[in-house]
């Protein structure tokens, strides 16, 4: 077990280091001199050179990488060229939007998907199953940003229940802030819920064929109890895997939705930073997201090992 843990951990760390080298290298070969960008086209070559020295851009490549990587480790990401504030402050500010959004979306998708999956699996092949899986099939096909536009049209333009976009900030009160995250969260949750419902259903169906389910039924437990207590618990492994992947996706995948709703989140920050060539922001956010994905994958892998004893003995 310890060997397995250590191996997984080592692989994750190695992936992280490799990813950081890739990110650093890609941004290194990009055209465009950050010092020139900051000073504008009219700056003299001397001025640019001076700033390059100040920013440490003239140091050897390996040294700059080590400096950058050690900065990442101590959460010192440097300063944004365009905002002239430490990147970590920007990230913290934007996470206050993106993280709650991702969590609400994840919660919504789980609340919808698990009961639908249960319902479908327990009525396998009957009308209820066909209808809910048909709906799931449709949900998978809907681009979340188009669904977002439709939601805006119905709930913001037509019914005027929620704002069409923008974010008042948490200082404006919890309710107004939550209200502006509601439509984006629903838009994000729908396709995710559709996928999750399908996974839940097929995982349940697989489990429902197992011997211990027959035993549980044979000893007289009601179907509902078997479904919730025995089947669902055993079907949770693939469901949790998908949930982990979806959470990682939600953190990074909100770029388009944040653009649709004009939300000042992490995705919008990185998108604007890309278009403005604010590379320090781009590389920091990308590295953070990569680290988050790797961490989530590691947690999912470890939860496998906890649940499935066979994995523990495997070297």
């Amino acid at each position: 077990m310890t060997t397995y843990l250590l191996k997984r951990l080592a692989i994750s760390l190695a992936t992280l280091v490799l990813a950081s080298i890739v990110v650093f290298a890609v941004l290194e070969i990009l055209p465009g001199d950050p010092a020139r960008l900051m000073l504008g086209m009219n700056a003299s070559a001397d001025q640019v050179e001076l700033l390059r020295n100040q920013m440490g851009l003239n140091a050897p490549l390996a040294l700059r990488y080590l400096h950058w990587a050690s900065g990442l480790l101590s959460l010192d990401f440097g300063r944004s060229y365009t905002y002239s504030v430490p990147v970590i402050d920007l990230v913290r500010e934007r996470l206050a939007v993106s993280l709650p959004l991702a969590l609400i979306a994840l919660a919504l998708s789980t609340i919808i998907a698990i009961p639908v999956g249960l319902f479908s699996a327990s009525r396998r092949g009957r009308a209820g199953d066909t209808i809910s899986m048909g709906a799931a099939q449709l949900g998978v096909a809907v681009p979340n940003f188009w669904f977002a536009l439709m939601l805006i049209y119905i709930f913001a333009v037509w019914l005027r229940l929620v704002p069409a976009g923008g974010f008042p900030g948490w200082s404006a009160g919890v309710w107004p802030a939550l209200k502006s995250l509601l439509l984006p969260a629903i838009a994000l949750a729908l396709p995710q819920a559709a996928i999750l419902a399908r996974v839940t259903r097929s995982a349940l169906i697989e489990v429902l064929n197992d011997d211990y389910i027959r035993t549980a039924r044979a000893k007289g437990l009601p179907y509902r109890a078997v479904l919730w207590r025995h089947a669902l618990r055993n079907a949770m492994i693939p469901v949790l895997t998908i949930l982990g992947l979806q959470f990682a996706f939600l953190l990074a995948g909100t770029i388009i939705i944040e653009n649709v709703f004009y939300l000042p989140g992490l995705g919008r920050l990185v998108f604007q930073a890309i278009t403005q060539r604010d590379l320090i922001v781009v590389e920091s956010v990308v590295m953070l997201l990569v680290a988050a994905v790797i961490a989530v994958n590691l947690i999912v892998d470890l939860s496998y090992a906890v649940v499935d004893p066979r994995l523990r003995s495997r070297q």
């Binding site: 992936t15 990813a19 953190l251 995948g253 388009i256 781009v282 990308v286 990569v290 994905v293 790797i294």
Partner: peptide, 15 residues
Amino acid sequence: NDLVFAFPALLSAIM
């Protein structure tokens, strides 16, 4: 493979 999977696909495509 794992390395590529660690990069959020949509974000990287946008980049």
